[in-house]
C-alpha cells in the first residue's frame, strides 16, 4: 500500500485554518445545478439539431407558399391555354406549363395546399380518435380493454391502402373521402401508443406514490399522464403527416384521389407519366421535387422531435 505523497507534504498551511467552522454560517451546499423543465429542455435540444430545425423551416416555408403561391400568378390552377402546351419554365410561367397549357407554378402550390391540408387534417383527426380510444382502453383496462384491443387487432390485419381504395370506390373520389379513408385505419397506431403509455403510467411507482400522497385523478392526468404521453403522441402526429401526404399522392396517382381539374402532386406526377423521356422534364420534376421535399422535411423534423422528447436521452 503506497501513500500519496506527490503533493508537497511540507507545504506551509497556516495554523488558524484548523479551527472548526460554524456550520450554520457557512454556505457549503451551493453546488446544485439549476434544473430545467422537460419541455424547455426538449425545445433546447431540438434547436441544437440542425437537421430538425431546417426541416421545420422548410415546413413553414412550404406552408406559406401553399397559402400565397397560387396568388402570385395571374393564372388559376385550371386555366387552360392550349397554345401554351408543354412550355418550359420561363418568365411568364416560372415552372412551365403542362399539356393543357396550365401554369405549373400555380398548380404546384395549389397541390401543396391539398397535400398539407390532408396531412394536417389526418394528423389532427387521428390524434383525437387515437387519444380518446387509447385513453379509454388503457384507463378502463380489464374486459373493456381486451375487447377494444381485439377490434384494433382485426383492423390492423386489414391492409390499409386496400381499405382506402375500397372506400374511394364506394364514396367516390374527393378530398373528404381521402381524409375519411386515411383516418379510418390511421388512428390505430396513435391509439396503441396512448394505451401503452396509460397502462405503463397506471402501474408506475411514481403515479402510485402520488396517489398515496392523495393526488386526485385529474391531478394525476394533468401532472403525470399528459406530459408523459404527449411526447410520443406529438412525434406520431408529426410522422402521420408525411404518411398521409404520400397516401394522397399515391391515390391521386392511381386516379383515385382528387378529380380533375383540381391539381394534386400525385395527379401531376401521373400526368407526367405520359411524357416521360420526352424532354419535358419540368412536368415530372416540380411535383416530384416538392412532394419529396415535403415528406423529407416532416420526416426529419419528426425524427428530431423524437430525439428531443426522448427522456432517456436527457442529461
Amino acid at each position: 500500500m503506497s501513500v500519496t505523497t506527490k503533493k508537497s507534504a511540507n507545504r506551509v498551511i497556516e495554523d488558524r485554518l484548523f479551527a472548526p467552522i460554524d456550520k450554520n454560517k457557512a454556505e457549503l451546499n451551493t453546488l446544485v445545478r439549476p434544473s430545467v423543465g422537460f419541455w424547455k429542455d426538449a425545445w433546447r435540444r431540438l434547436l441544437k439539431n440542425k437537421l430538425a430545425v431546417s426541416g421545420l423551416v422548410v415546413i413553414i416555408a412550404l406552408t406559406i407558399m401553399a397559402i400565397i403561391g397560387p396568388m402570385l400568378t395571374p393564372y388559376s390552377y385550371s386555366d387552360q391555354t392550349l397554345s401554351n402546351q408543354n412550355m418550359g419554365p420561363s418568365r411568364e410561367h416560372w415552372f412551365g406549363t403542362d399539356n393543357l397549357g396550365r401554369d405549373m407554378f400555380t398548380r404546384t402550390w395549389y397541390g401543396a395546399r391539398i397535400s398539407l391540408f390532408i396531412g394536417f387534417a389526418a394528423a389532427l383527426i387521428e390524434f383525437f380518435i387515437g387519444v380518446i380510444y387509447g385513453g379509454i382502453s388503457g384507463y378502463k383496462g380489464g374486459r373493456a380493454d381486451n375487447i377494444m384491443m381485439r377490434i384494433i387487432d382485426i383492423l390492423y390485419g386489414l391492409p390499409y391502402l386496400l381499405v382506402v381504395i375500397l372506400l374511394m370506390v364506394i364514396m367516390g373520389p374527393g378530398l373528404f373521402t381521402i381524409i375519411v379513408a386515411l383516418t379510418l385505419t390511421g388512428w390505430i397506431g396513435m391509439a396503441r401508443i396512448v394505451r401503452g403509455q396509460v397502462l405503463q403510467l397506471k402501474t408506475n411507482e411514481y403515479v402510485l406514490a402520488s396517489k398515496v400522497l392523495g393526488a386526485d385523478t385529474s391531478r394525476i392526468i394533468r401532472k403525470h399522464l399528459l406530459p408523459n404521453t404527449m411526447g410520443p403522441v406529438i412525434v406520431s402526429m408529426t410522422l402521420t403527416v408525411p404518411g398521409a401526404i404520400f397516401a394522397e399522392a399515391f391515390l391521386s396517382f392511381l386516379g383515385l384521389g382528387v378529380s380533375a381539374p383540381v391539381a394534386s402532386w400525385g395527379s401531376m406526377a401521373n400526368d407526367a407519366l405520359g411524357v416521360l423521356n420526352t424532354g419535358y422534364w419540368w412536368r415530372l420534376f416540380f411535383p416530384a421535387f416538392f412532394i419529396s421535399l415535403t415528406m423529407l422535411a416532416f420526416n426529419v423534423f419528426g425524427d428530431g422531435l423524437r430525439d428531443a422528447l426522448d427522456p432517456k436521452l436527457r442529461r
Binding site: F250, M295, N299
Partner: peptide, 10 residues
C-alpha cells in the same frame, strides 16, 4: 422514406 416509390420509379 421520403421519395414516394412511384416518383422513384419514374
Amino acid at each position: 422514406i421520403s421519395i414516394p416509390n412511384f416518383i422513384q420509379s419514374m
